[in-house]
């Protein structure tokens, strides 16, 4: 465990807390993409299926349960919560996710770390899917032009988590002799690159004060 990975996990937890606060606490799903929320639920349920047999550490175990639980809770409230449904904008949240899920599934089968193990294929699929899962959310924000304050912090924390993981992989690559994981490297790079535009507008709007809403062109 290194500081980058720890901060990355904390940032990921923060993004969940912000989103849960908005959706469950604030009873509002305005500006939030259900498609992204559902893809994240798929990412965690597929990647953390090794909960059943791989007990790397208590820390990992608890966080995996937390991420699966939080992502499913968010999807549940966005789908069945009365006030959340009322504020969720289904026709704007229209990114064709089948064009994201299908290629990731094919890639997961073709490019993974051990072709003899189905879990490795599922794990690779979840890594690829996570890299593009934010697209419907960014697409929705782009369409709405203005990003509500809490939503902007949620997206920022989510972007920061994978950026910190990139530093973690760099650090592990330098300090651990045989450490190399090309799959997560490339996917993490793509994932973080997708946030660059948002980060720029987030920084521009927040430098005048944390409570300004983010404007996207």
């Amino acid at each position: 465990m290194n500081i980058f990975r720890f901060l990355g996990d904390m940032s990921h937890i923060l993004s969940f807390l912000l989103l849960l606060h908005k959706i469950v606490g604030g009873k509002s799903a305005a500006g939030i993409s259900l498609r992204t929320a559902e893809m994240y639920a798929i990412v965690f349920c597929t990647r953390y299926i090794d909960l059943l047999w791989n007990f790397a550490s208590l820390y990992n175990y608890l966080l995996k349960l937390l991420f699966i639980g939080a992502s499913l809770t968010i999807v549940y409230f966005m789908r069945y919560g009365p006030s959340q449904k009322a504020t969720y904008n289904a026709d704007e949240d229209a990114f064709p996710v089948q064009y994201l899920i299908a290629p990731c599934a094919v890639l997961g089968v073709l490019i993974n770390q051990d072709h003899s193990s189905p879990f490795e294929m599922v794990w690779a699929f979840s890594i690829y899917l996570e890299a593009v899962a934010i697209l419907p959310q960014l697409f929705l924000l782009q369409k709405q032009g203005e990003v509500e304050n809490l939503t902007s912090h949620y997206v920022f924390a989510l972007g920061a988590y994978r950026a910190l993981y990139l530093l973690n992989w760099m650090f592990r690559f330098m300090t651990e002799p045989d450490y190399q994981q090309r799959i997560v490297w490339l996917s993490g790079l793509v994932q973080t690159a997708l946030y660059c535009d948002f980060f720029y507008h987030y920084y521009q709007s927040k430098k005048g004060g944390l409570n300004k809403s983010v404007k996207l062109p």
């Binding site: 550490s57 973690n168 799959i183």
Partner: peptide
């Protein structure tokens, strides 16, 4: 590509 190492990251 490294054989399926135990996944120690989230």
């Amino acid at each position: 590509i490294s054989k399926g190492k135990p996944k120690d990251e989230l």
